[in-house]
Protein backbone atom coordinates (compact mmCIF):
# COMPACT_ATOMS: atom_id res chain seq x y z
CA UNK A 1 0.00 0.00 0.00
CA UNK A 2 1.25 3.48 -0.75
CA UNK A 3 0.98 6.29 1.80
CA UNK A 4 -2.26 7.56 0.35
CA UNK A 5 -3.95 4.18 0.64
CA UNK A 6 -2.64 3.89 4.22
CA UNK A 7 -3.92 7.35 5.04
CA UNK A 8 -7.34 6.99 3.49
CA UNK A 9 -7.96 3.44 4.61
CA UNK A 10 -11.44 1.98 4.85
CA UNK A 11 -12.25 2.77 8.48
CA UNK A 12 -11.13 6.41 8.12
CA UNK A 13 -13.36 6.86 5.09
CA UNK A 14 -16.17 5.05 6.88
CA UNK A 15 -16.01 7.47 9.82
CA UNK A 16 -15.76 10.39 7.35
CA UNK A 17 -18.81 9.35 5.40
CA UNK A 18 -20.90 8.35 8.45
CA UNK A 19 -19.59 10.17 11.50
CA UNK A 20 -20.67 8.48 14.77
CA UNK A 21 -22.65 10.48 17.36
CA UNK A 22 -23.37 12.95 14.59
CA UNK A 23 -25.67 15.87 15.23
CA UNK A 24 -26.54 18.61 17.68
CA UNK A 25 -28.07 18.63 21.14
CA UNK A 26 -30.39 20.99 23.02
CA UNK A 27 -29.65 19.93 26.60
CA UNK A 28 -25.86 19.72 26.54
CA UNK A 29 -23.88 20.64 29.66
CA UNK A 30 -21.47 22.39 27.36
CA UNK A 31 -21.35 23.22 23.67
CA UNK A 32 -18.17 24.40 22.04
CA UNK A 33 -17.16 25.33 18.49
CA UNK A 34 -13.58 25.21 17.19
CA UNK A 35 -12.32 26.35 13.83
CA UNK A 36 -9.05 25.64 12.09
CA UNK A 37 -8.50 28.76 9.95
CA UNK A 38 -5.66 27.15 8.03
CA UNK A 39 -7.93 24.54 6.51
CA UNK A 40 -11.44 25.72 7.20
CA UNK A 41 -12.17 22.60 9.29
CA UNK A 42 -14.95 23.19 11.80
CA UNK A 43 -16.22 21.17 14.72
CA UNK A 44 -19.19 21.65 17.03
CA UNK A 45 -19.09 19.45 20.12
CA UNK A 46 -21.94 18.92 22.59
CA UNK A 47 -21.27 17.14 25.90
CA UNK A 48 -23.60 15.93 28.62
CA UNK A 49 -21.54 15.60 31.80
CA UNK A 50 -23.20 13.77 34.68
CA UNK A 51 -22.83 14.34 38.41
CA UNK A 52 -19.92 11.89 38.56
CA UNK A 53 -18.19 14.11 36.07
CA UNK A 54 -18.43 11.47 33.36
CA UNK A 55 -19.34 11.96 29.73
CA UNK A 56 -22.92 10.67 29.66
CA UNK A 57 -23.56 11.67 26.06
CA UNK A 58 -21.85 13.37 23.17
CA UNK A 59 -22.76 14.77 19.78
CA UNK A 60 -20.34 16.05 17.18
CA UNK A 61 -21.04 18.14 14.10
CA UNK A 62 -17.84 18.19 12.08
CA UNK A 63 -17.27 19.90 8.73
CA UNK A 64 -13.96 19.52 7.00
CA UNK A 65 -11.50 17.07 5.56
CA UNK A 66 -11.59 13.30 6.00
CA UNK A 67 -8.92 13.37 8.68
CA UNK A 68 -10.61 15.98 10.88
CA UNK A 69 -14.06 14.42 10.53
CA UNK A 70 -12.82 10.87 11.17
CA UNK A 71 -10.87 12.08 14.16
CA UNK A 72 -13.97 13.76 15.67
CA UNK A 73 -16.09 10.70 15.00
CA UNK A 74 -13.60 8.24 16.49
CA UNK A 75 -12.94 10.43 19.52
CA UNK A 76 -16.67 10.72 20.21
CA UNK A 77 -16.86 6.92 20.51
CA UNK A 78 -13.67 6.79 22.55
CA UNK A 79 -14.73 9.21 25.30
CA UNK A 80 -18.30 8.15 26.00
CA UNK A 81 -18.41 7.09 29.66
CA UNK A 82 -14.94 8.46 30.40
CA UNK A 83 -14.39 10.82 33.32
CA UNK A 84 -13.14 14.37 33.00
CA UNK A 85 -9.98 13.26 34.80
CA UNK A 86 -9.33 10.66 32.11
CA UNK A 87 -10.01 13.17 29.34
CA UNK A 88 -7.60 15.68 30.81
CA UNK A 89 -4.86 13.07 30.46
CA UNK A 90 -5.46 12.58 26.70
CA UNK A 91 -2.48 13.60 24.59
CA UNK A 92 -1.71 14.19 20.95
CA UNK A 93 -0.11 10.74 20.78
CA UNK A 94 -3.37 9.10 21.89
CA UNK A 95 -5.21 10.70 18.98
CA UNK A 96 -2.56 9.64 16.48
CA UNK A 97 -2.69 6.11 17.87
CA UNK A 98 -6.49 6.15 17.67
CA UNK A 99 -6.35 7.20 14.00
CA UNK A 100 -3.62 4.67 13.29
CA UNK A 101 -2.54 6.28 10.01
CA UNK A 102 0.48 8.29 8.90
CA UNK A 103 -0.16 12.01 9.50
CA UNK A 104 2.15 14.52 7.83
CA UNK A 105 3.07 17.67 9.79
CA UNK A 106 0.73 19.87 7.72
CA UNK A 107 -2.24 17.60 8.46
CA UNK A 108 -1.58 17.48 12.21
CA UNK A 109 -3.93 20.41 12.80
CA UNK A 110 -6.70 18.49 11.03
CA UNK A 111 -6.09 15.40 13.15
CA UNK A 112 -5.98 17.31 16.43
CA UNK A 113 -8.98 19.62 15.98
CA UNK A 114 -11.13 17.06 17.80
CA UNK A 115 -8.84 16.96 20.82
CA UNK A 116 -8.53 20.75 20.96
CA UNK A 117 -12.31 21.07 20.86
CA UNK A 118 -12.75 18.45 23.57
CA UNK A 119 -10.12 19.96 25.87
CA UNK A 120 -11.55 23.46 25.46
CA UNK A 121 -15.07 22.15 26.06
CA UNK A 122 -13.91 20.68 29.36
CA UNK A 123 -12.08 23.91 30.29
CA UNK A 124 -15.22 25.92 29.63
CA UNK A 125 -17.29 23.44 31.61
CA UNK A 126 -14.93 23.57 34.60
CA UNK A 127 -14.54 27.33 34.52
CA UNK A 128 -18.08 28.52 33.88
CA UNK A 129 -20.68 25.77 33.91
CA UNK A 130 -19.52 23.55 36.76
CA UNK A 131 -19.17 26.52 39.12
CA UNK A 132 -22.85 27.29 38.86
CA UNK A 133 -23.91 23.71 39.63
Amino acid sequence: MDTIELMYQENILDHYKSPRNFGRMENASVHHHEYNPLCGDELDMFLVIDKHKKIADIKVNPHGCAISVASASMLSEEIKGKSIGEIEKLKKEDILEMLGIPISPVRLKCALLSLDTLKNSILIFEKYVNKQV
Binding site: L38, C39, A66, C110
Partner: peptide
Protein backbone atom coordinates in the same frame (compact mmCIF):
# COMPACT_ATOMS: atom_id res chain seq x y z
CA UNK B 1 -18.20 16.23 -4.71
CA UNK B 2 -17.96 14.42 -1.38
CA UNK B 3 -14.25 15.14 -0.88
CA UNK B 4 -12.79 18.04 1.08
CA UNK B 5 -10.33 20.23 -0.83
CA UNK B 6 -7.52 19.25 1.54
CA UNK B 7 -7.94 15.61 0.79
CA UNK B 8 -7.99 16.41 -2.94
CA UNK B 9 -4.74 18.30 -2.52
CA UNK B 10 -3.14 15.53 -0.48
CA UNK B 11 -3.96 12.85 -3.03
CA UNK B 12 -2.86 15.04 -5.94
CA UNK B 13 0.43 15.60 -4.11
CA UNK B 14 0.98 11.84 -3.99
CA UNK B 15 1.00 12.01 -7.81
CA UNK B 16 3.47 14.90 -7.80
CA UNK B 17 0.79 17.51 -8.52
CA UNK B 18 1.07 20.63 -6.35
CA UNK B 19 -2.13 22.67 -5.98
CA UNK B 20 -3.55 24.86 -3.23
CA UNK B 21 -6.52 24.00 -1.03
CA UNK B 22 -8.30 26.24 1.42
CA UNK B 23 -9.98 29.62 1.49
CA UNK B 24 -7.19 31.32 -0.52
CA UNK B 25 -7.18 34.27 1.91
CA UNK B 26 -10.69 35.10 0.67
CA UNK B 27 -12.94 34.04 3.54
CA UNK B 28 -15.65 36.64 2.73
CA UNK B 29 -15.79 35.41 -0.89
CA UNK B 30 -15.94 31.77 0.25
Amino acid sequence: HGVHAHDVSQILDSEGVAIRAGHHCCMPLM
